[in-house]
Lab assay of single mutants.
Amino acid sequence: TFELKGKVGKVVKIAEDHYLVESEGDKWIAYSDEKLSLGDRVMVVDVDGLKLKVKRIP
């Protein structure tokens, strides 16, 4: 299986209740415990079905 946990991506869209993150050339629906901005670099900390939980990284 394709393992996304630990992968790095970038926030490419902000929606009302989720983010769109591009990682490894694909776009994924993501959510975070912190507020993210367009262009933020993020790391995948968990995968919930087809949704990614991400956190901001420097």
Rank of each mutant, 00 (worst) to 15 (best):
H18M: 12
I14A: 10
V8C: 08
V42A: 04
D40T: 09
I57K: 04
G9S: 02
G49L: 05
F2K: 15
V21W: 14
G49T: 07
L4Q: 15
D33P: 13
K7L: 04
Y31G: 08
Y31D: 13
K55C: 15
V47M: 09
E22N: 05
I57Y: 10
G39W: 11
G6L: 01
V11M: 02
K27T: 08
K55M: 14
K27Q: 06
Y19K: 00
V21H: 00
R41W: 06
V12K: 05
S23P: 01
S37R: 07
E34P: 02
E3Y: 02
F2S: 15
V47Y: 05
I14K: 06
K53E: 14
L52D: 01
V47N: 03
G39L: 13
K55S: 14
Y19G: 01
V47E: 05
E3L: 02
K35T: 12
R41H: 12
K51W: 12
K27S: 13
A30I: 02
K35M: 08
V21Y: 04
R56H: 11
F2N: 15
K35V: 08
D33G: 07
D46G: 03
G25Q: 05
V54W: 02
E22K: 07
L52I: 09
R56E: 06
V8Y: 04
S23V: 15
V42G: 00
E22W: 06
F2E: 15
D26W: 14
K35Q: 12
P58N: 07
H18N: 10
D46K: 02
D46L: 03
R56K: 11
D48N: 08
K5H: 14
W28T: 02
T1F: 14
L52A: 07
D48S: 04
I14M: 12
P58I: 10
A15Y: 07
E16W: 11
L50A: 09
T1G: 15
S23E: 03
S37P: 02
S23H: 12
S37I: 10
K13F: 10
V8E: 14
T1R: 15
V42D: 00
S32P: 01
K5D: 15
V54Y: 01
K7N: 04
V11R: 00
K53P: 01
D33L: 07
V11Y: 00
K13T: 10
M43D: 05
A30S: 14
I57E: 14
K35A: 10
K13W: 08
Y19F: 08
L38A: 11
T1Q: 15
R41E: 14
K51D: 08
K10D: 11
D17F: 09
T1I: 15
W28A: 03
V21I: 08
D48V: 12
G39N: 13
E22P: 00
V8T: 08
G25M: 05
K7T: 04
K53M: 10
G9D: 00
F2Q: 15
G9F: 06
I57F: 14
K13H: 06
E22F: 08
F2G: 15
V44A: 03
D33E: 09
E3D: 04
V42T: 04
G9H: 02
I14T: 07
V21R: 00
W28K: 02
L20G: 06
V21Q: 00
T1E: 15
K10N: 08
S37L: 11
E24H: 03
K5L: 15
R41D: 14
L52M: 03
K7A: 11
E24Y: 03
G25R: 03
H18E: 11
V12I: 07
E22C: 12
V42F: 02
V44E: 02
L20E: 08
G9L: 08
T1K: 15
G25P: 05
A30T: 14
Y19M: 09
V8M: 05
D17M: 12
V21M: 13
G39R: 07
V42R: 00
H18F: 08
L50D: 06
K55P: 00
A15L: 09
G25C: 05
D26S: 11
L52S: 02
E16S: 11
D26P: 04
W28R: 04
K7F: 03
V54C: 07
V12F: 06
K7E: 05
V42E: 00
V54G: 01
D46P: 01
T1S: 15
G25H: 05
D17A: 12
K53A: 06
D40C: 06
V45Y: 07
A30W: 01
V47T: 04
L50I: 10
V45A: 05
L20K: 05
S32Y: 01
L38M: 09
H18P: 00
V54D: 00
I57N: 10
A15G: 07
Y31F: 12
I14C: 09
D17P: 11
D48L: 11
L38F: 11
L4W: 04
K13L: 10
G6R: 00
V42N: 00
V54F: 02
G25T: 05
G39Q: 09
D46C: 08
G49D: 08
L52H: 02
Y19W: 06
D40H: 05
